[in-house]
């Protein structure tokens, strides 16, 4: 299973965080891969409408989450806005944000060790 994830918006435009993140379950630990598959299943991702969450008039600084899941020959893209509301969708976004954070912590540690 492959997930493409991109976040934008929020109170500031942070170019580093707006970059897309691609996650392949084949590259995750077995536990993480199982967790991700469970979250996709639990959110009924392939049955979700193209947009989840509904903005009220005048809303500002909310984040938008673009998630595309590809598994075998099926692929589905969903856009979520704050607040995600549905708990299962929020949990999936939390998982993806955790992976992004892991990558940042890793690259920061590498820099501190003096690696490029």
């Amino acid at each position: 299973m492959r997930i493409e994830y991109r976040k934008e918006g929020g109170i500031a435009h942070l170019p580093g965080l707006a970059k897309p993140l691609t996650i392949d379950t084949a590259e995750l630990t077995p536990e993480q891969a199982a967790e991700l598959e469970r979250l996709v299943e639990q959110s009924a991702f392939f049955s979700l409408p193209a947009t989840v969450g509904r903005l009220k008039r005048g809303a500002a600084d909310y984040q938008e989450y673009h998630i595309q899941v590809t598994e075998g020959d099926r692929s589905h893209a969903v856009q979520v806005v704050d607040p995600a509301g549905a708990e299962a969708v929020a949990a999936l976004i939390d998982f993806l944000d955790d992976r992004q954070r892991e990558a940042i912590i890793k690259s920061r540690a590498a820099r501190q060790r003096g690696e490029p």
Binding site: G10, L55, A59
Partner: peptide, 17 residues
């Protein structure tokens, strides 16, 4: 205390978060 480790603040049209 909105969300988990949520890195943002926003106005949802009616309130602050």
């Amino acid at each position: 205390h909105f969300g988990r480790r949520y890195n943002n603040a926003f106005w949802n049209g009616q309130q602050m978060v």
